[in-house]
């Protein structure tokens, strides 16, 4: 077995990559067709989208099942483990940059675009010739631009549900860390308890977030269409929410895998990867809480 460790595991042929490419293609092709469909026209777009989406889920299930089997068979040595770690790390970094694009849009809109339209600094002529009745402001009075796109709206007060959600996510970061320590201590009961708690916290975050969205749409008239304020608000919180959803699902899968006894004291990278991801989602939320809600 000693030599075993010296050899890097190169998997033999696999059908999952091509399956993944096909189902992703179906998904986006369906989505594209659906977006371009005339109102009322059903078309095949939705069908393709649905088939593709289900296919993506099946593909992930199949691909990860194969990986889990290899892992349980002991084929991954420390070097393979390092590759996985690097892969996950840089994947998270790419996610950071993805959010960076939307944060960039938020900062630009707040610091430049809106003030300029209101005649500040570089925007004197823009204001004078095109929008001279626009008083620039972020938030409720002006965050939807000089044309007041989407009509007047109110913003979500930060110290209600957003604060609660902040506390929920922070707590969940603690519980997932406790679960991690429990894995390292080989304390299965504690892992299941705290990991389960993390899943529940994630789910309650999503529940509150959904409530907040409904309130925004129904009572505050704050929608995706509320000018650049609504655009940045929903784009940032929405993409974050999608990441929380994904994270919660992954945590739930880790819970099941722990239940099945997949993780050992020093062989539980899948869990760690999900925990990293969860911390990342948490940090992004802190950014959102500060820059979207409070400031």
């Amino acid at each position: 077995m000693g030599q075993h460790q010296d050899v890097y595991f190169v998997p033999s042929k696999s059908q999952w990559p091509i399956v993944a490419a096909v189902v992703l293609f179906l998904t986006v092709f369906g989505a594209g067709h659906w977006l371009n469909a005339e109102p009322g026209e059903s078309g095949f777009g939705k069908t393709f989208l649905l088939i593709g989406f289900v296919g993506v889920l099946a593909m992930f299930f199949g691909w990860f099942r194969a990986v889990i089997r290899e892992s349980l068979a002991g084929r991954y040595n420390a070097q393979v483990d390092r590759s996985f770690r690097m892969g996950m790390m840089w994947f998270i970094f790419s996610e950071v940059m993805f959010f960076g694009a939307f944060f960039g849009a938020l900062f630009y809109a707040r610091l430049y675009a809106v003030p300029w339209l209101g005649g500040e600094g570089h925007g004197v002529l823009t204001h004078q010739f095109l929008w001279n009745d626009y008083a620039a402001a972020w938030g409720a009075n002006g965050g939807n631009g000089p044309a007041r796109i989407g009509g007047s709206f109110e913003t979500v007060p930060p110290w209600g549900m957003p604060l609660l959600n902040t506390l929920i996510l922070l707590t969940s970061s603690v519980t997932v860390t406790i679960a991690h320590h429990a894995i390292k201590d080989g304390h299965r009961g504690r892992v299941l308890l705290f990991l389960g708690l993390t899943v529940l916290l994630g789910a309650s975050f999503l529940y509150f977030q959904a409530n907040e969205y409904m309130e925004a749409y129904r009572e505050l008239n704050l929608t995706l269409k509320s000018g650049v304020y609504g655009s940045t608000f929903f784009m940032l919180t929405g993409f974050h929410g999608m990441h929380v959803t994904l994270g919660t699902i992954m945590l739930a899968v880790m819970w099941l895998r722990e239940l099945k006894g997949h993780f050992t004291r020093d062989h539980h990278f899948a869990f760690e990867a999900v925990a990293w991801y969860w911390h990342f989602v948490d940090v992004v939320w802190l950014g959102l809480f500060i820059f979207v809600y409070i400031l």
Binding site: A101, A109, A113, N144, G145, G150, G227
Partner: peptide, 22 residues
Amino acid sequence: VTMLLTDKYFGTSFFNAAGGGD
């Protein structure tokens, strides 16, 4: 490009000055 997509199909105003974008 995602913002392009939402500007066209979902009514966002990232790149529309009338809505406070640019």
